[in-house]
Design a protein around this nucleic acid. Structure first.
Lengths: 344, 344
DNA sequence: ATGAAAGCGCTAACAT
DNA sequence: ATGTTAGCGCTTTCAT
């Protein structure tokens, strides 16, 4: 299978084609100033030798062809969807993806990433929350010479630091809360609030806004803090069902995992979903259809969000010109886990 | 934050330290032949200038510092666990991880990967099934100059092509089947067999072996083909429960997702788990504890499997000497989804 | 339209 | 223990 022992270089091609190696370089880079005859001959020789331009040597003279996906998120589905979206765009453009799970709370996040950029391997970085919320980190990375795009929860571009893909959690949170209210629910629990978690804040704001607009009072005891996990969903629901004197008629879970945990616990407490209690999720992850009944949820197009992010960084890496931020607004997806409230 | 406009090079450090740039190179590479005094001075200057060796330039003279994880598997948890295991090892050794989801059935899998290797970005490749089962692909990649390690289902090293991390599905399949039989089950369905899927074949062999050893006949109608998905698990269980005259008392699902689907369907059919039917999974994925009851399953240490694979490729990339294959045998993990068979 | 020379940042081979 | 010279494979001047 190996035609020769060593990998052919641009010079080998040049020798075989009887031209200077610069001409070969021009052909490889698709430059205009080569006669068709020569171009064809060179291309023939490239094929004959199975010549592959040495990426490493090219990077040394031009810019890197890799970008990094930096994240700190325990949710496999989220990470994989993001990853797949980014990769799909990378493929189209001939870029490679480097993966960097990172502890956002570590002292030296910046330094670690700086080493990666400074050593010239990576030209662009995509950041997801909570890393993308760290403005000091973002400016630091830009200063190190990286192009960065942030994926962020929000209704608009927050600043001019770097382009962002913003996802409107507030609007989506409002839409699903409004849906629950329209079903007659007045005591809707909110599960999974975390003040440090921007998305959950946005979702809570939407929840509050929907109540406000509908003239329904929010009972603060119905808002529970917790993690974005199945287990936490179970525990919060347990607390809710055991410790409250007035129980909720519906649950707005901050994501599908929490919702799945809530459904699980409701069943343990002999409550039927949605007959006795309505439960909705957020994200449209695989969890939402692996529970019974299937979850009414918010469809968050993570793949597309990630692909847009990749498309932005890549164009930033290619030309210096500025690039526009992009917004996404996830939409309500009605399935079977929410129903009309029982009239008391 | 940026001290100067351009990134400092080894020469800048040399100038500042008043030594030749080769001496700086020696310090950076931790070579012995530098006096302590000079070493210290150089290190000071490196810090002062915030000098970062240019990774790209180093690769050009030495070998690549990146390895690729190549997979074709729709299971997010599996991929993420593998990925995390590989990365954890990469970090320890200062390597970067490039991700390559790949369509194993595409015509030009090899060519695509060859381009990555040939362009000198990647020195080592980790392959999971089904790609790792493609021997032609493996030899091709080795011929291209890559070090490759395969993660494979099997009880031993299958050949000398390249080192492998082999996972003994057969032994594990036997263990869990034996467990079911010991509980008194005689009609155990096997869900998710796929002749093209080596792991499922191993698991089925274990299932058959356990029956054989216990002197229990296998009813071929109880072996169902299907995908490794929740949905497929539901459908297979539906067929099983609706179309068979003699229903099973237990189900051995080829993975946890199938098992979760089976549990789901059993409940839809008003069967209690494990009172009316026992259901076991395989893999110990998050699914296994997000179903009720929690699944008895096989604990497959994917993180460690992946870390070992990474450790192998890296040492292959570093020294030329051969490296030993490693085996893993996943173990039974008893939870709540299997119980004694009802005596007829 | 083509080529020669220089140099990217580094390491290897060979001095001293 | 330290420095000099060459050269990795390529692109970028600057010729011709």
């Amino acid at each position: 299978m190996a035609l020769s022992t060593k990998k052919p270089t641009i010079k080998d091609v040049a020798k075989l084609a009887g031209v200077s190696f610069k001409t070969v370089s021009r052909v490889v880079n698709n430059e205009a100033s080569v006669s068709d005859a020569v171009r064809e001959k060179v291309n023939d020789c490239i094929k004959k030798l199975n010549y592959q331009p040495n990426h490493t040597a090219r990077i040394m003279r031009k810019s890197p062809f890799s970008l990094a996906f930096v994240y700190d998120n325990p949710n496999s589905h989220y990470v994989i969807q993001m990853q797949n979206g980014i990769i799909s765009e990378c493929r189209k453009q001939g870029f490679e993806l480097v993966i960097r799970p990172t502890n956002s709370k570590a002292e030296d996040v910046g330094k670690e990433l700086a080493a990666m950029i400074g050593s010239n391997q990576i030209g662009g970085v995509i950041l997801t929350p909570p890393l993308s919320e760290n403005r000091a980190l973002v400016s630091f990375l830009i200063n190190q010479g990286a192009k960065v795009v942030r994926i962020l929860s929000g209704s608009e571009e927050p600043d001019e630091l770097a382009p962002v893909i913003y996802v409107d959690d507030k609007a989506a949170g409002e839409e699903i809360s409004q849906y629950l209210i329209s079903l007659g629910h007045k005591r809707i629990a909110f599960l999974g609030y975390n003040p440090e978690h921007e998305s959950s804040r946005g979702r809570l704001q939407g929840y509050q806004l929907a109540h406000e607009k509908a003239g329904v009072a929010v009972d603060k005891n119905l808002i529970l803090q917790g993690e974005f996990t199945f287990e936490s969903g179970m525990n919060m629901t347990k607390d809710l069902l055991e410790n409250q004197t007035t129980s909720p008629t519906a649950i707005f879970a901050c994501n599908d995992e929490i919702a799945a945990g809530a459904v699980f616990m409701a069943r343990l407490k002999n409550l039927r979903v949605p007959e006795d209690i309505s439960i909705v999720g957020f994200e449209n992850s695989p969890f939402s259809v692996q529970t019974w009944p299937h979850l009414t949820t918010i469809d968050q197009p993570n793949f597309n969000i990630a692909a847009s992010a990749a498309s932005l960084v890549i164009s930033m890496m290619q030309d210096e010109k500025a690039v526009e931020s992009v917004g996404f607004c996830p939409k309500l997806l009605i399935r079977d886990s929410a129903a009309k409230a029982l009239t008391a």
